[in-house]
Amino acid sequence: MRNLVAARKCLVFFLGTLLLAVNIHSTSYGQGRYKIYWTEAGWTKKTGKIRRAHLDGSHVKDIVTELKAPRAIALDMLRRKVYWTDESTRKIQRADLTGRNVKDIITGFTFPPGGRSVTITCRDGKCTGVVYWKEGKIKLTHDLLINPRHIALDVQRKKMYWVNEMLKHIQRANLDGSDVEDLVTYEAFSNALTLDRNRGKMYWTDYSRNAIRRANFDGSNVENVVATMDEPVSLALDVARGKIYWTVWIRGFDGPRTIQRADLDGSNLEEIFTSPDQLKSLALDPVGGKIYWITSESKTHTGTIQRANLDGSKVENIITGLNNPWSIALDFPGVRVTPSIDKLTTTWGKMKVE
């Protein structure tokens, strides 16, 4: 009898958990939870925006408006936050996915009117700067020398990583902006940054080397992954399939722009898409087997979000007529742990066989 009671409880718990999980997933999907997020850099009169839409391009909505020049974007779906860098204000900011509670996370020095020339001197890993302007000069400490370009999040470890174009550093901090660390120094210009959270690796582009490089999360063991004669712009990883994807913005100046991919060791390089327009940010939906990217006309900066299969086939336009779009991020379908499931698991752990 005791075994029969235990078996019944186990069956009831299993069915209840399954039904709850299906209900939660169906509710989220039915509400269009899985979305595309992107930035549009206004540059003048605070016309920059953070926007989103469903994965099929429908239900386009402004999330955050009146921004100067939002560039890179990253999502923390665990805490329901969106992060972005602003190239004009030299900040990393974040907000709720609804657009509320906009907050400065990392802030650098704001140049005074007419003050754009800065001289930087570094010694023993620390840098100082001097800004020259019409009323004299301003001395800057290391922590104020910030111009964040690209950002990537490790939400499980509560860390964010970014490219600091002013110092030529890759830096990281806690998600609230505390405990800033310098990790890697690059030589000239870096266009992209992404993370392999499972293996503890960060990948970035190095313009001076025409290469994609990687290192451990702490900045150690720097190595080349892909050496190319082109200018890689945006990076994305498909860790499950062992692939790295990137866009080439300018190829021989007059040549076509392409999306390329290779194995994570740099082998088996191939071009999967060619475009006459600028190719900017890209993002992967490995579950759905799709790649999304932004194209932009060189003269008008009018942009389009496109998508295709991971091999570049079946290209389709998702959203057109965008105003100078820059960066893209996806909230795609996947396995999610919810508080209610955790509670059920805890309840099961406390059950006693009577």
Rank of each mutant, 00 (worst) to 15 (best):
12 V>H: 03
212 I>G: 00
195 L>A: 09
158 K>L: 14
275 S>T: 12
232 P>T: 07
96 D>V: 02
249 W>Y: 14
166 M>L: 15
110 T>D: 07
119 T>C: 05
240 A>H: 12
54 H>A: 15
294 I>A: 05
194 T>A: 10
195 L>I: 02
144 L>C: 06
304 T>Y: 03
318 I>H: 02
114 G>V: 11
144 L>V: 01
97 L>N: 10
56 D>T: 01
36 I>A: 10
56 D>M: 04
224 N>V: 12
239 V>Q: 10
29 Y>F: 01
117 S>W: 06
239 V>K: 08
190 S>W: 09
314 K>F: 01
72 A>P: 02
340 S>E: 14
16 G>N: 10
2 R>M: 10
76 D>T: 08
48 G>W: 06
135 E>P: 04
347 T>H: 11
352 K>D: 06
277 D>N: 15
28 S>F: 10
63 I>P: 11
264 L>D: 00
298 S>H: 13
97 L>F: 14
264 L>F: 03
74 A>K: 05
197 R>E: 14
53 A>K: 05
42 G>Y: 03
287 V>M: 10
196 D>G: 04
236 A>Q: 09
257 R>Q: 15
159 K>W: 02
252 G>C: 04
255 G>Q: 09
324 N>S: 06
349 G>T: 03
332 F>C: 09
164 N>F: 09
199 R>P: 01
195 L>D: 05
271 E>A: 15
173 A>Y: 06
295 T>Y: 03
96 D>N: 15
150 H>M: 02
264 L>C: 00
239 V>L: 11
13 F>L: 12
212 I>H: 01
50 I>L: 15
204 W>V: 05
118 V>S: 07
47 T>M: 09
112 P>K: 08
56 D>G: 06
71 R>V: 11
351 M>Q: 06
268 N>Q: 12
305 I>S: 04
286 P>M: 11
12 V>M: 06
89 T>G: 01
256 P>N: 08
116 R>T: 12
111 F>I: 02
259 I>H: 03
6 A>Q: 08
291 I>W: 06
32 G>H: 04
334 G>D: 11
233 V>K: 14
187 E>Y: 05
169 H>Q: 10
333 P>Y: 08
33 R>L: 13
56 D>R: 07
126 K>M: 14
142 H>N: 15
18 L>Y: 10
207 Y>A: 15
43 W>P: 06
151 I>E: 02
212 I>Y: 05
268 N>Y: 08
92 I>M: 07
269 L>A: 14
348 W>K: 15
129 G>R: 14
256 P>T: 00
119 T>S: 14
329 A>R: 11
88 S>A: 13
62 D>W: 10
159 K>M: 13
169 H>T: 05
234 S>P: 04
213 R>V: 04
162 W>P: 07
149 R>P: 01
247 T>D: 00
98 T>A: 13
341 I>N: 02
104 D>Q: 00
122 C>I: 03
86 D>I: 11
305 I>H: 08
142 H>T: 00
74 A>D: 08
240 A>V: 12
292 Y>T: 14
331 D>Q: 12
137 K>M: 14
